[in-house]
């Protein structure tokens, strides 16, 4: 276990070291303070900003948009994955589309979506949903592909019905992949919604960063950037830890 600890220590060292290096470079003026704030100043700016409550409506807006898009994409993506798994012919035909979905910049559909839904958060929900749903569907497919056929035989030996086979055998066997799918879905929903806000919308965290940039408000910009990075990393790490726990159990010698 000492190697594991060494890896962990080195990782922490790497991250802390990078931040410290950045801090020193900024403080000594090697990096122009107009270009980049020192990490400590970013943190102060972030805390001030959050405490002031100025961006609270934007935070609520972005998070609620992400939450709706994420929830929808998990439900629809899982169902779509299951349907595609049951229909191999359709799956084969859709394969190139599934493989290249992430090359499609979904937010270019924003104007169309505004025409459909009006100027509210629904166009952004749709953009986040489109990016996240496919990731969820693909992970579901992977998970279902990897359910060992022998476990289905065991279910039949125990004379389990379809529903009980699904919930007692298939879902637990595919749990790690479903978890991976949720992790990706959350990340993609967050990425594309922030991007959508940044480029197109008039509200939300992404928009506030763009606005701060355009009005040369470095403090707000870097404070918000740091906040977004921290939130994304925290969400990802949490789901990653959960996924690893499932994977460890799943691993076979």
């Amino acid at each position: 276990m000492s190697r594991g600890r060494a890896v962990l220590a080195s990782r922490v060292g790497l991250i802390v070291g990078s931040i410290a290096l950045l801090e020193i470079l900024c403080r000594t003026g090697v990096i122009n303070p107009l270009t980049l704030l020192a990490p400590s100043q970013m943190a102060v700016a972030m805390v001030d900003l959050l405490a002031s409550g100025k961006v609270t409506p934007d935070i609520e807006r972005t998070f609620s948009t992400v939450a709706i898009a994420f929830a929808l994409s998990v439900v629809v993506g899982t169902a779509a994955g299951a349907v595609l798994h049951a229909m191999p012919r359709l799956r084969r035909a859709l394969d190139p589309l599934l493989a290249s979905y992430y090359a499609v910049p979904f937010f270019v559909f924003y104007p169309v979506l505004v025409a459909f839904f009006g100027l509210n958060e629904m166009p952004l929900v749709a953009i986040g949903f489109a990016a996240a749903m496919v990731a969820m569907a693909i992970s579901t497919l992977n998970g279902l592909d990897r359910v060992p056929p022998v476990l289905i035989k065991v279910a039949r030996m125990h004379r389990l019905g379809r529903l009980r086979t699904l919930f007692l055998v298939v879902v637990p066997a595919a749990a790690a992949s479903l978890m991976t799918g949720m992790k990706l879905a959350l990340a993609y929903a967050f990425i594309s919604i922030i991007a959508g806000e940044f480029i197109l919308s008039g509200r939300g965290l992404g928009y506030q960063i763009a606005y701060a940039y355009n009005s040369f408000d470095n403090k707000t910009m870097y404070g918000l950037m740091l906040f977004v990075l921290l939130v994304a990393t925290a969400m990802n790490s949490l789901l990653h830890m959960w996924e690893q726990r499932l994977l460890r159990r799943r691993a076979r010698a």
């Binding site: 060992p148 022998v150 035989k153 030996m157 007692l168 066997a173 799943r250 076979r252």
Partner: peptide
């Protein structure tokens, strides 16, 4: 599969998400 027949397979068919006890109790609980 009729009642009274039990099968042991060639592949590892243990449920990785259940403990040994829960694996063994699986069929009885169902």
């Amino acid at each position: 599969v009729p009642d009274g027949i039990g099968v042991v397979f060639q592949e590892d068919a243990s449920f990785p998400w259940l403990t040994v006890t829960d694996n063994i109790a699986f069929g009885l609980r169902r």
